[in-house]
Design a protein around this nucleic acid. Sequence first.
DNA 1: CTTTCTGCAAACGATTTGCAGCAGC
DNA 2: GCTGCTGCAAATCGTTTGCAGAAAG
Lengths: 147, 147
Amino acid sequence: MSRRIEDVMAVAERRLGGVNQRLTSGRRALLAILSDTDRPLTLPEVLEANSALAQSSAYRNLVVLEEAGVVERVVTRDEFARYELTADLTGHHHHLVCSGCGRVEDLAATPSLERAVNSTVATVQRQRGFRVDDHRLDLIGMCADCA
Amino acid sequence: MSRRIEDVMAVAERRLGGVNQRLTSGRRALLAILSDTDRPLTLPEVLEANSALAQSSAYRNLVVLEEAGVVERVVTRDEFARYELTADLTGHHHHLVCSGCGRVEDLAATPSLERAVNSTVATVQRQRGFRVDDHRLDLIGMCADCA
DNA sequence: CTTTCTGCAAACGATTTGCAGCAGC
DNA sequence: GCTGCTGCAAATCGTTTGCAGAAAG
Protein backbone atom coordinates (compact mmCIF):
# COMPACT_ATOMS: atom_id res chain seq x y z
CA MET A 1 0.00 0.00 0.00
CA SER A 2 2.91 2.40 0.34
CA ARG A 3 3.11 4.51 -2.80
CA ARG A 4 5.79 6.00 -4.89
CA ILE A 5 6.62 9.52 -4.02
CA GLU A 6 5.30 10.86 -7.34
CA ASP A 7 1.92 9.39 -6.52
CA VAL A 8 1.97 11.03 -3.12
CA MET A 9 2.81 14.40 -4.66
CA ALA A 10 0.06 14.04 -7.26
CA VAL A 11 -2.55 13.15 -4.65
CA ALA A 12 -1.34 15.97 -2.43
CA GLU A 13 -1.53 18.52 -5.22
CA ARG A 14 -5.07 17.49 -6.01
CA ARG A 15 -6.22 17.59 -2.39
CA LEU A 16 -4.45 20.85 -1.66
CA GLY A 17 -6.18 22.35 -4.66
CA GLY A 18 -9.45 21.25 -3.12
CA VAL A 19 -8.87 23.60 -0.20
CA ASN A 20 -7.35 26.42 -2.28
CA GLN A 21 -3.78 25.72 -1.40
CA ARG A 22 -0.72 25.16 -3.52
CA LEU A 23 1.85 22.39 -3.54
CA THR A 24 4.88 24.48 -2.74
CA SER A 25 8.49 23.51 -2.24
CA GLY A 26 8.20 23.52 1.55
CA ARG A 27 5.22 21.20 1.38
CA ARG A 28 6.97 18.99 -1.14
CA ALA A 29 9.90 18.70 1.23
CA LEU A 30 7.64 17.67 4.10
CA LEU A 31 5.90 15.04 1.99
CA ALA A 32 9.24 13.69 0.79
CA ILE A 33 10.40 13.24 4.38
CA LEU A 34 7.16 11.60 5.50
CA SER A 35 7.14 9.33 2.45
CA ASP A 36 10.59 8.12 3.32
CA THR A 37 9.85 6.70 6.73
CA ASP A 38 7.72 3.93 8.18
CA ARG A 39 6.86 5.64 11.43
CA PRO A 40 5.37 8.98 12.47
CA LEU A 41 7.97 11.70 13.00
CA THR A 42 8.14 14.52 15.52
CA LEU A 43 8.71 18.08 14.35
CA PRO A 44 12.35 18.02 15.53
CA GLU A 45 12.89 14.82 13.56
CA VAL A 46 11.41 16.45 10.50
CA LEU A 47 13.67 19.48 10.85
CA GLU A 48 16.65 17.24 11.39
CA ALA A 49 15.85 15.49 8.12
CA ASN A 50 15.87 18.82 6.30
CA SER A 51 17.53 21.62 8.17
CA ALA A 52 16.55 24.16 5.53
CA LEU A 53 12.96 24.09 6.78
CA ALA A 54 11.81 26.86 9.09
CA GLN A 55 10.11 25.60 12.20
CA SER A 56 7.06 27.84 12.00
CA SER A 57 6.49 27.11 8.33
CA ALA A 58 6.85 23.39 8.96
CA TYR A 59 4.20 23.56 11.69
CA ARG A 60 1.99 25.70 9.51
CA ASN A 61 2.34 23.46 6.50
CA LEU A 62 1.65 20.31 8.49
CA VAL A 63 -1.62 21.89 9.57
CA VAL A 64 -2.46 22.69 5.95
CA LEU A 65 -1.54 19.19 4.81
CA GLU A 66 -3.69 17.77 7.58
CA GLU A 67 -6.63 19.94 6.52
CA ALA A 68 -6.10 18.77 2.96
CA GLY A 69 -6.32 15.18 4.18
CA VAL A 70 -2.79 14.13 3.25
CA VAL A 71 -1.11 14.14 6.65
CA GLU A 72 -2.30 12.91 10.00
CA ARG A 73 -1.19 14.14 13.38
CA VAL A 74 -0.53 11.39 15.91
CA VAL A 75 -0.61 12.21 19.60
CA THR A 76 0.92 9.84 22.13
CA ARG A 77 1.97 10.72 25.64
CA ASP A 78 5.17 12.56 25.21
CA GLU A 79 5.88 16.17 24.62
CA PHE A 80 5.88 16.16 20.83
CA ALA A 81 3.11 15.45 18.36
CA ARG A 82 4.03 13.21 15.46
CA TYR A 83 3.10 13.36 11.80
CA GLU A 84 2.62 10.76 9.09
CA LEU A 85 0.89 10.38 5.75
CA THR A 86 -2.80 9.51 6.01
CA ALA A 87 -3.93 5.90 6.06
CA ASP A 88 -5.26 5.97 2.52
CA LEU A 89 -1.73 6.70 1.31
CA THR A 90 0.14 4.27 3.53
CA GLY A 91 -2.42 1.60 4.39
CA HIS A 92 -4.35 1.22 7.61
CA HIS A 93 -2.02 0.42 10.47
CA HIS A 94 -1.57 0.62 14.20
CA HIS A 95 1.25 1.82 16.42
CA LEU A 96 3.83 0.38 18.75
CA VAL A 97 4.61 3.02 21.36
CA CYS A 98 7.75 2.63 23.47
CA SER A 99 7.31 3.84 27.05
CA GLY A 100 11.07 4.13 27.36
CA CYS A 101 12.08 6.45 24.54
CA GLY A 102 8.72 7.52 23.17
CA ARG A 103 9.49 6.19 19.71
CA VAL A 104 6.48 5.15 17.64
CA GLU A 105 6.61 2.44 14.98
CA ASP A 106 3.98 1.36 12.50
CA LEU A 107 2.35 -2.04 12.68
CA ALA A 108 0.31 -3.33 9.75
CA ALA A 109 -3.28 -4.19 10.66
CA THR A 110 -4.22 -7.86 10.58
CA PRO A 111 -7.56 -9.00 9.13
CA SER A 112 -8.62 -10.92 12.22
CA LEU A 113 -8.01 -7.95 14.46
CA GLU A 114 -9.84 -5.59 12.13
CA ARG A 115 -12.74 -8.02 12.03
CA ALA A 116 -12.96 -8.04 15.82
CA VAL A 117 -12.77 -4.24 15.97
CA ASN A 118 -15.46 -3.85 13.35
CA SER A 119 -17.77 -6.11 15.22
CA THR A 120 -17.27 -4.02 18.37
CA VAL A 121 -17.88 -0.88 16.33
CA ALA A 122 -21.19 -2.23 15.08
CA THR A 123 -22.30 -2.94 18.64
CA VAL A 124 -21.32 0.51 19.85
CA GLN A 125 -23.18 2.30 17.09
CA ARG A 126 -26.29 0.30 17.85
CA GLN A 127 -26.19 0.56 21.63
CA ARG A 128 -24.71 3.98 22.29
CA GLY A 129 -25.78 6.12 19.38
CA PHE A 130 -22.12 6.95 18.77
CA ARG A 131 -21.17 7.01 15.11
CA VAL A 132 -17.70 5.51 14.69
CA ASP A 133 -15.64 6.88 11.79
CA ASP A 134 -12.23 5.51 12.57
CA HIS A 135 -10.22 3.74 15.21
CA ARG A 136 -6.79 3.81 16.72
CA LEU A 137 -4.98 0.95 18.41
CA ASP A 138 -1.68 1.48 20.19
CA LEU A 139 0.37 -1.27 21.75
CA ILE A 140 2.36 0.17 24.64
CA GLY A 141 5.60 -1.42 25.77
CA MET A 142 9.36 -1.47 25.40
CA CYS A 143 11.17 -1.45 22.08
CA ALA A 144 14.14 -3.72 21.51
CA ASP A 145 16.60 -0.91 22.29
CA CYS A 146 15.00 0.09 25.59
CA ALA A 147 14.18 -3.35 26.97
CA MET B 1 -15.31 -3.84 38.56
CA SER B 2 -15.95 -0.30 39.72
CA ARG B 3 -15.26 -0.09 43.42
CA ARG B 4 -16.69 1.70 46.34
CA ILE B 5 -14.95 4.91 47.13
CA GLU B 6 -13.61 3.59 50.45
CA ASP B 7 -11.84 0.83 48.56
CA VAL B 8 -10.33 3.35 46.18
CA MET B 9 -9.07 5.46 49.08
CA ALA B 10 -7.59 2.43 50.82
CA VAL B 11 -5.79 1.28 47.70
CA ALA B 12 -4.60 4.81 47.05
CA GLU B 13 -3.25 5.20 50.56
CA ARG B 14 -1.32 1.97 50.27
CA ARG B 15 0.16 2.82 46.88
CA LEU B 16 0.97 6.38 47.83
CA GLY B 17 2.80 5.03 50.86
CA GLY B 18 4.80 2.86 48.50
CA VAL B 19 6.28 5.98 46.93
CA ASN B 20 6.60 7.91 50.20
CA GLN B 21 3.59 10.08 49.70
CA ARG B 22 0.59 10.77 51.89
CA LEU B 23 -3.10 10.57 51.20
CA THR B 24 -3.98 14.20 51.84
CA SER B 25 -7.27 16.03 51.57
CA GLY B 26 -6.44 17.43 48.13
CA ARG B 27 -5.69 13.95 46.86
CA ARG B 28 -8.81 12.56 48.48
CA ALA B 29 -10.85 15.20 46.71
CA LEU B 30 -9.35 14.28 43.33
CA LEU B 31 -10.00 10.58 43.88
CA ALA B 32 -13.58 11.29 44.93
CA ILE B 33 -14.20 13.21 41.72
CA LEU B 34 -12.60 10.58 39.52
CA SER B 35 -14.49 7.79 41.31
CA ASP B 36 -17.74 9.53 40.60
CA THR B 37 -17.55 9.54 36.82
CA ASP B 38 -17.45 6.98 34.03
CA ARG B 39 -15.23 8.92 31.71
CA PRO B 40 -11.82 10.61 31.90
CA LEU B 41 -12.00 14.26 32.95
CA THR B 42 -9.96 17.26 31.88
CA LEU B 43 -8.34 19.47 34.48
CA PRO B 44 -10.94 22.22 33.96
CA GLU B 45 -13.68 19.64 34.51
CA VAL B 46 -12.00 18.51 37.70
CA LEU B 47 -11.76 22.07 38.99
CA GLU B 48 -15.37 22.67 38.06
CA ALA B 49 -16.37 19.67 40.15
CA ASN B 50 -14.55 21.12 43.15
CA SER B 51 -13.75 24.77 42.89
CA ALA B 52 -11.81 24.74 46.13
CA LEU B 53 -8.94 22.96 44.43
CA ALA B 54 -5.96 25.01 43.32
CA GLN B 55 -4.98 24.41 39.72
CA SER B 56 -1.30 23.89 40.32
CA SER B 57 -1.88 21.51 43.22
CA ALA B 58 -4.40 19.55 41.19
CA TYR B 59 -1.88 19.14 38.38
CA ARG B 60 0.83 18.26 40.85
CA ASN B 61 -1.31 15.74 42.69
CA LEU B 62 -2.47 14.07 39.52
CA VAL B 63 1.19 13.51 38.68
CA VAL B 64 1.78 12.00 42.11
CA LEU B 65 -1.30 9.80 41.83
CA GLU B 66 -0.14 8.68 38.42
CA GLU B 67 3.29 7.80 39.78
CA ALA B 68 1.63 5.89 42.59
CA GLY B 69 -0.29 3.88 39.99
CA VAL B 70 -3.77 5.05 40.96
CA VAL B 71 -4.53 7.51 38.19
CA GLU B 72 -3.89 7.34 34.49
CA ARG B 73 -3.44 10.25 32.14
CA VAL B 74 -5.28 9.93 28.85
CA VAL B 75 -4.13 11.97 25.89
CA THR B 76 -6.36 12.43 22.88
CA ARG B 77 -6.08 15.14 20.25
CA ASP B 78 -7.42 18.17 21.91
CA GLU B 79 -5.77 20.72 24.06
CA PHE B 80 -6.37 19.13 27.45
CA ALA B 81 -5.13 15.88 28.90
CA ARG B 82 -7.70 13.79 30.74
CA TYR B 83 -7.44 11.79 33.93
CA GLU B 84 -9.12 8.65 35.22
CA LEU B 85 -8.56 5.92 37.78
CA THR B 86 -6.27 3.13 36.60
CA ALA B 87 -7.69 0.08 34.89
CA ASP B 88 -7.17 -2.19 37.89
CA LEU B 89 -9.58 0.01 39.85
CA THR B 90 -12.19 0.51 37.15
CA GLY B 91 -11.79 -2.49 34.89
CA HIS B 92 -10.06 -2.62 31.52
CA HIS B 93 -11.89 -0.50 28.99
CA HIS B 94 -11.51 1.46 25.79
CA HIS B 95 -12.57 4.95 24.75
CA LEU B 96 -15.07 6.58 22.48
CA VAL B 97 -13.61 9.89 21.36
CA CYS B 98 -15.92 12.47 19.79
CA SER B 99 -14.26 14.48 17.01
CA GLY B 100 -16.90 17.16 17.43
CA CYS B 101 -16.67 18.15 21.08
CA GLY B 102 -13.64 16.17 22.23
CA ARG B 103 -15.60 14.35 24.90
CA VAL B 104 -14.28 10.91 25.86
CA GLU B 105 -16.49 8.11 27.15
CA ASP B 106 -15.55 4.73 28.51
CA LEU B 107 -16.40 1.53 26.69
CA ALA B 108 -16.12 -1.81 28.44
CA ALA B 109 -13.79 -4.25 26.70
CA THR B 110 -15.36 -7.30 25.11
CA PRO B 111 -13.76 -10.75 25.41
CA SER B 112 -13.66 -11.40 21.68
CA LEU B 113 -11.92 -8.10 21.01
CA GLU B 114 -9.40 -8.68 23.79
CA ARG B 115 -8.72 -12.13 22.42
CA ALA B 116 -7.97 -10.71 18.98
CA VAL B 117 -5.72 -8.02 20.45
CA ASN B 118 -3.82 -10.55 22.54
CA SER B 119 -3.19 -12.70 19.55
CA THR B 120 -1.77 -9.70 17.68
CA VAL B 121 0.33 -8.86 20.73
CA ALA B 122 1.84 -12.34 20.76
CA THR B 123 2.81 -12.02 17.11
CA VAL B 124 4.40 -8.63 17.61
CA GLN B 125 6.50 -9.75 20.53
CA ARG B 126 7.74 -12.71 18.52
CA GLN B 127 8.43 -10.89 15.26
CA ARG B 128 9.52 -7.44 16.32
CA GLY B 129 11.24 -7.88 19.65
CA PHE B 130 8.86 -5.32 21.11
CA ARG B 131 7.61 -6.20 24.58
CA VAL B 132 3.95 -5.22 24.86
CA ASP B 133 2.79 -4.22 28.35
CA ASP B 134 -0.55 -2.66 27.61
CA HIS B 135 -2.79 -1.47 24.83
CA ARG B 136 -5.14 1.34 24.05
CA LEU B 137 -8.05 1.30 21.64
CA ASP B 138 -9.96 4.46 20.77
CA LEU B 139 -13.00 4.57 18.55
CA ILE B 140 -13.17 7.96 16.87
CA GLY B 141 -16.45 9.42 15.70
CA MET B 142 -19.41 11.57 16.62
CA CYS B 143 -21.31 11.33 19.87
CA ALA B 144 -25.10 11.46 19.92
CA ASP B 145 -25.09 15.18 20.76
CA CYS B 146 -22.70 16.22 17.97
CA ALA B 147 -24.03 14.00 15.17
C1' DC C 1 -0.31 41.68 -10.46
C1' DT C 2 -2.77 39.34 -6.96
C1' DT C 3 -3.05 35.78 -3.86
C1' DT C 4 -0.94 32.67 -1.20
C1' DC C 5 3.67 31.38 1.27
C1' DT C 6 7.58 31.96 3.95
C1' DG C 7 10.57 33.21 7.91
C1' DC C 8 11.35 35.86 11.74
C1' DA C 9 10.19 37.20 16.13
C1' DA C 10 6.68 37.72 19.36
C1' DA C 11 2.52 35.68 21.52
C1' DC C 12 -0.18 31.78 23.43
C1' DG C 13 -1.69 28.50 26.70
C1' DA C 14 -1.47 24.04 29.01
C1' DT C 15 1.46 22.42 32.32
C1' DT C 16 5.42 22.84 35.59
C1' DT C 17 8.09 24.83 39.21
C1' DG C 18 10.27 28.02 43.12
C1' DC C 19 9.19 29.45 47.30
C1' DA C 20 7.11 30.67 51.83
C1' DG C 21 3.78 29.14 54.87
C1' DC C 22 0.62 25.01 56.38
C1' DA C 23 -0.59 20.14 57.48
C1' DG C 24 0.18 15.08 58.30
C1' DC C 25 2.23 11.74 61.24
C1' DG D 1 9.21 19.06 65.06
C1' DC D 2 10.40 17.09 60.70
C1' DT D 3 9.03 16.27 56.20
C1' DG D 4 6.20 16.69 52.88
C1' DC D 5 2.06 19.49 50.90
C1' DT D 6 -0.34 23.59 49.39
C1' DG D 7 -1.23 27.91 46.81
C1' DC D 8 0.39 31.74 44.55
C1' DA D 9 2.81 33.71 40.97
C1' DA D 10 6.30 33.22 37.68
C1' DA D 11 8.61 30.28 34.32
C1' DT D 12 8.65 26.67 30.63
C1' DC D 13 8.16 25.06 26.15
C1' DG D 14 5.63 23.05 22.24
C1' DT D 15 2.94 25.30 19.10
C1' DT D 16 0.57 29.34 16.90
C1' DT D 17 0.32 33.84 14.87
C1' DG D 18 1.24 38.91 12.96
C1' DC D 19 3.59 40.91 9.65
C1' DA D 20 6.57 42.31 5.72
C1' DG D 21 8.80 40.52 1.91
C1' DA D 22 9.06 36.44 -1.64
C1' DA D 23 7.01 33.05 -4.78
C1' DA D 24 3.20 30.88 -7.52
C1' DG D 25 0.09 31.24 -11.39
